[in-house]
Nucleic acid binder design. Sequence first.
DNA 1: TTGTACGCGTTATCAA
DNA 2: TTGATAACGCGTACAA
Lengths: 328, 328
Amino acid sequence: MANRAGVSIKTVSRVVNRQSNVSEATRKAVMEAVDALSYRPNVFARGLASERSFLIGLLYDNPSLSYAAALQIGVLARCREEGYHMIVESLDAQSPNLGSQVHSLVTESTLHGVILTPPLCDMPAAIDALNRARTPFVRIAPEKPLANSSDVRIDDHKAAYDMTAYLIGLGHKRIGFIKGHPDHGAANARFEGYRAALAHAGLPLIEELCVQGFFSYLSGMEAGERLLSLKKRPTAIFASNDDMAAAVLAASQRFNLKIPQQLSVAGFDDSFVAQVVWPRLTTCRQPIKEMAEAAVSMLIQKTAEDGPMERRLDHELIVRESTAPPTS
Amino acid sequence: MANRAGVSIKTVSRVVNRQSNVSEATRKAVMEAVDALSYRPNVFARGLASERSFLIGLLYDNPSLSYAAALQIGVLARCREEGYHMIVESLDAQSPNLGSQVHSLVTESTLHGVILTPPLCDMPAAIDALNRARTPFVRIAPEKPLANSSDVRIDDHKAAYDMTAYLIGLGHKRIGFIKGHPDHGAANARFEGYRAALAHAGLPLIEELCVQGFFSYLSGMEAGERLLSLKKRPTAIFASNDDMAAAVLAASQRFNLKIPQQLSVAGFDDSFVAQVVWPRLTTCRQPIKEMAEAAVSMLIQKTAEDGPMERRLDHELIVRESTAPPTS
DNA sequence: TTGTACGCGTTATCAA
DNA sequence: TTGATAACGCGTACAA
C-alpha cells in the first residue's frame, strides 16, 4: 500500500478518485507515493466495492470490419483519457437469445456503460436487456430515436440526399441505388434520402434501378452486376456504403466500363477502401471516430442522471475521381 | 444467490467452475437455478478472490486496422467459447514509458494473459513489464523467439521465398521489393526470404529495386512511384503487405501501366483489400484468425506451468489476377 | 460430497 | 480533513 509510503491510510482512495475533502499537503504526499510505487488501484476491487467499473463495453455485429475498427479507435482514445478500459464483444443480432447474452454480459461485468452499434442498436431484445440491468447505453446510428435512450448519429437522410443531388447536378438522370442491410436503420434513411432528392428534382423513381444489398462486398458485387446487366443501364450508381461501391467498381471492369466516363460510382462512409480502390471513390464522410468519442463522453458524463441525450454530427461530401458528368 | 433456489450454498462455485467433487444431482439442481435466475458470476468478485480474471488483453500499435481487426475476430471467438472476455488497448510502441504503461495495465486489471502484436511483441520494455508483473503473454509474429516466452507465427521467410520463387518462375528477373516497417520482425524476415529466393535462382539483388516502406498505404504509394520512376523499371513488384500492394496498383495507374500485362504486383496477408482492388491481388495468405485463436488457447491452457510454447501455422500462396509472365 | 470461515483490495459510512 | 470498519461477491482451505 501507498499509505505506508505516504502518511495516511486509505485517504489514498480519496486522492485517486479526485474527491474533495483532502488537504493539498496530503494530496501531494499521496501522489508522490503513488508515483514512487507506481501504484494502480485494482480494477476488480474497485468494481466490487463500488458501482463504478471503469469498463466500457463495445457491442457489435457488423459485417464491415473497417467500421468497427474505426469506432474502436475513437472509443479507445476517450477511454485512455478518462482512465477507462474498453471491452469488446461480438454478438449475433439474429440469435434468439440475444437478450440473455447481453444481459449476462453486463451483469457479469457490471459495465459502466455500453455502446451499441448497428444493427444491435435497433434490436429490442438488446435494449430491453440493458434496461433491465439498468446499464446506461448509447446507440450509434440507430433507426429512430427511442424514449429514454441516448444516441449519436449523422443525418443519413440528408447525407444521401446531398449525394444524390450532387449526381443529379452532374447531369445524371438514371441513378442506380444499392440499398444497405435492411436491419440497419441508417440504410433505410439513406434510401429515403435518395428518393427525396429524386422527387425534389422531378425525376422518377425507377424500380429496377433500386436493388437490395447488405453492406457486404459480395452483395455489392451481385447488385452491381444486376444493375449493369440492365438493358437500359444507369449512368451512375450510388451504393449505400464503400464496400459495395468498391464491388461495383470491380463489376464494371467485367462489363468493360470506364469509370467515371461511362459510369459514375459513389459510396458512403469514406472508409479505407474508398481511398484504396482506383479510381478513388466519391463518397460521404461519416465522422466515425468522433461519433465514438462522443458516445464514450456521454456514457461517462452520465454519472449524473441527466436523462437521454442525442448528438448529431456533420457529414461531408467527398468528391473524388469515381464520379463525372454522363457522356451521352 | 442461486443457492436459495437450488438446495446448497456455494457449491454453486464448484459447479460454475466445473470442478469435480459434485454429485450429478446437485449439479443439475444448481444448473437449473442458474438458468432460472439467469445467474452470472460477477467478474470482479472472481478476479478479486482468485488469480483468474477471465480477461485477455489484446495490446496493439498497428498502422493496419485490418490486421488488428482480423486478430480480434479470432480472439473473440475463442474467448466466447471459454467464457473469457477481451479487453483491448492501443499503445504507442515508441513511447519512452511504454514499459510503465504496460505495467499499469496488467496490474490494474490482473489480466489472465496478454496478446502482444507486432511491433509491440519485440519491444523489450513491454516484455520486461509483463515479466515483472508475472503476467503470461504470447507474442504474435515476433522478430525472433525469446527464452521463456510463447509465440505464434508463420514462417515469414519461407512465405516470402515462395512468393518470390513464384514470380521468378513466371519469368520475372527484375523484381522490385517494398519492405515493411523496420520495427516489425516479420518485415525483415520477408525481405530475407526475398533475397534468399533471388540468390537461389542465381539472380542478382539490385539495390535500387529494394525500397523502404512502412506497411501503410501512403508509404506503399511513395515506394511504388519511386520504383516505377526508375529508368529500368521492374517487371514485377512484391510488397510486404496488401495495403502497400494496393497502393502500387494505384500508382501504376498514374504511369499508365496495365496490370498484370506490363507489371505484376504481389502483396502479403490476403486482407480485405486484396480482394477488393482491381485486379485482385496475388498474395500470401496469413491465417491471422487462426493465429489469434491459437494465442488465446495457449494463454488459457497455461494455467499449468508448461513453459513456453511455439506454434507455427501454415501460409498459403494465393494467385489472382495481379500477376502474370512479363511481356517483353 | 458438501458446507464454513476467511480474505482478496477497494469504496462507503460513519465517527473522530 | 481524516481514520476505522463493514461490506462488495466470490474462491480457497479446511472441516464436517
